[in-house]
Amino acid sequence: MWKIADREVNSRLLIGSALYPSPDIMCKAIRASQSDIVTVSLRRQAFDGAAGEQFWNLLKELDINILPNTAGCHSAKEAITTAQMARELFNTNWIKLEVIGDDYSLQPDPFALLEATQELCVQGFEVFPYCTDDFVLCEKLLAAGCRILMPWGAPIGTGKGLMNPYALKQLRQRLPEATLIVDAGIGAPSHASQAMELGYDAVLLNTAVASANKPIAMGEAMGLAVQAGRLAYEAGIIQEQETAQPSTPTLGTPFWHQDSTP
């Protein structure tokens, strides 16, 4: 068990609910991942159906923590309004705060993100800001009241993995008290494991599972990768060396080896 904001959960994987081939596969993949937290969104009610209600029923069946997002917002005002609507709709003060500044890369707008964070923290939200790995921004988000930061690994949906491990490592070292979650850009389980090996508290991903050939199997793989990465971090990874070091003891080496030694 570990604590995220004010709740205790088992899994260190947060998973998205979008892009799956079917609602049934979505549920099975999320269960296979063993994630305790699923991200969701809000959209206009379609004029020709009851998709929102069907999705709501699936969420109830899953019975895990819900993390609504503000995806698609481009200003602090839009994000704040969406967060307020999400709080009422999903009955949670958790909000994954996304304020997009560049539609090409889906890079967060750091200025609008900070502005929205400041207001939402005052209003009692637990803000999970989707941010870049910029240290100054992260520090300001913490000062605004965040306990959790979610820097990107790579642009959303690219599956490129950790584009700047150095910056992510620096954040971990310099912000030891913050809950740090790599959000976005994960493609392979090794990427998720790498983030956990850096000491990140959790990983949030969606496309890597939902768009895999076999989303259910990939959900399980990601869950295991996050566990492995965390275990490795806690176990203590060895320091890299520039020269080879024999792993087999040299003491008691047979005589014919000694003969060949110059």
Partner: peptide
């Protein structure tokens, strides 16, 4: 007027 409902999201 905007009327929003729960939807899948990442």
């Amino acid at each position: 007027l905007e009327l929003l409902v729960p939807m899948q999201g990442g």
